[in-house]
Design a protein around this nucleic acid. Structure first.
Lengths: 223, 223
DNA sequence: TGCAACATTTTTGTTTACAATGCTGTCTAC
DNA sequence: GTAGACAGCATTGTAAACAAAAATGTTGCA
């Protein structure tokens, strides 16, 4: 599969972007060895530029480089996943707090309605459309981070999530997780709607801790 | 000033490490232009390796690269400093929480004694030795992060702090800041000593918010 | 003198070539 | 038949050469 790129574009970023996507979706599975020469051939650039791209991917924590032995896609063990979730709890909590403080409460009205009892989101889950639910949830999440107006926070969450994207999706389909998630999402978005930043943060953090607990219980099925 | 390095060492990391130190201490002031050729000459390596080092520094947020115009040391404005502090509040809070949960309460006894009313730390401040206080505080901070056993969190805090190292020191010498810091540090370390993770986190976050407030009041003197 | 166009120099961006290291497969000795 | 040594190959690491872009300097003209 050759994803050749037009010469007149900034291919540098394209290499990094393409590889981020492939790795975070497990299109290239964890543990895979990465050949500099192959990538150079595929993207039609010299190895030097591939190596610069690899430097960035390494710093993003997506690949691991062993001197004189090349690079391979990082493989997260359960310990690392829990580490990431703890960091994520802190950051997502703060994002919710800041978003609540900075955006007018009406901002969240549309999500309140989507998530209300007997509302569209609940209907999605009743249909078993976990994927659809996840998509809307992701949009809401991005909206919150946008409203938090904090690029530093946003960057950290980004780099965290691209490492656990696949795992997050798997957690969603664990027994009872989606339903529990719905109730918890409803809880924190309602707090945001009333402008109670402190409470919204607490509820958001509880939501993530609840996901961690589910993950812990079913850990053998995830990795 | 030539900081030439022995050939048989891993100079790659040395370039990055050296530059991180210089930038975070403002040995190279914000806004300075960085010449690839000069660095190559100084470290005795080719420009190729310098460029790889710059790629990493850029991703760490220490330098800014403009295509075809080279790299320069990042210059933080007040907005960005506040963004960083908000992220830091979340992360340091979580670090305190995790450390309290994971390490035995006796771990913190030595710091409780250092910080107690009329104790050595208070004496330091009475002597006006803010620098000395800061050094011990930094050691305690590192100990907490170590006890939190979360490399992801640790890495994020690291990358945040090296961008605001100089500013953090300046905040310490603001009127009344050191004394207020002492009281707040005493409060959260005491909570850690009693094993109350929730309360310790709250107090730690309050401590950082208090620093933010001081910074806000004296913002014109800082930047 | 001011300034605009062009030439020169400097600096960055990219490729190519070379060196060093690790891996693999074969051959030999026991 | 197996273990160890050695040779050849593949891959990574580094440097140098080349290309392109931007910055600077210079000249000519109004």
């Amino acid at each position: 599969m050759k994803a050749r790129v037009r010469k007149d574009e900034k291919v540098e970023v394209d290499i990094v972007a393409a590889m981020r996507e492939r790795i975070s979706t497990h299109a290239i599975p964890p543990g895979s060895k990465i050949s500099e020469a192959h990538l150079a051939e595929e993207f039609g650039v010299s190895r030097t530029r591939v190596r610069e791209a690899l430097t960035e991917l390494e710093f993003r924590g997506l690949i691991k480089r062993i001197p004189n032995r090349g690079a391979e896609v990082i493989r997260l063990d359960l310990t690392q996943v829990f580490e990431i979730y703890d960091a994520r709890e802190a950051l997502e909590g703060m994002a919710v707090r800041l978003a609540t403080q900075k955006a007018p409460p009406e901002t969240w009205q549309e999500w309140v309605e989507l998530l209300r009892e007997g509302g569209p989101m609940e209907k999605l889950l009743e249909k078993g459309d976990v994927e659809g639910y996840f998509l809307v949830y992701e949009r809401m999440r991005r909206r919150i981070i946008e409203a938090a107006e904090n690029p530093v926070l946003a960057g950290m969450l980004d780099s965290i999530l691209e490492k656990t994207r696949v795992i997050m999706r798997r957690v969603q389909i664990l027994p009872g997780r989606a339903a529990a998630g719905l109730a918890e999402h409803r809880a924190f978005i309602n707090a945001m709607r009333t402008g109670d930043a402190e409470r919204a943060e607490q509820l958001r953090r509880a939501n993530i801790r609840s996901a961690i607990a589910t993950l812990k219980r079913y850990q053998n099925f995830i990795l």
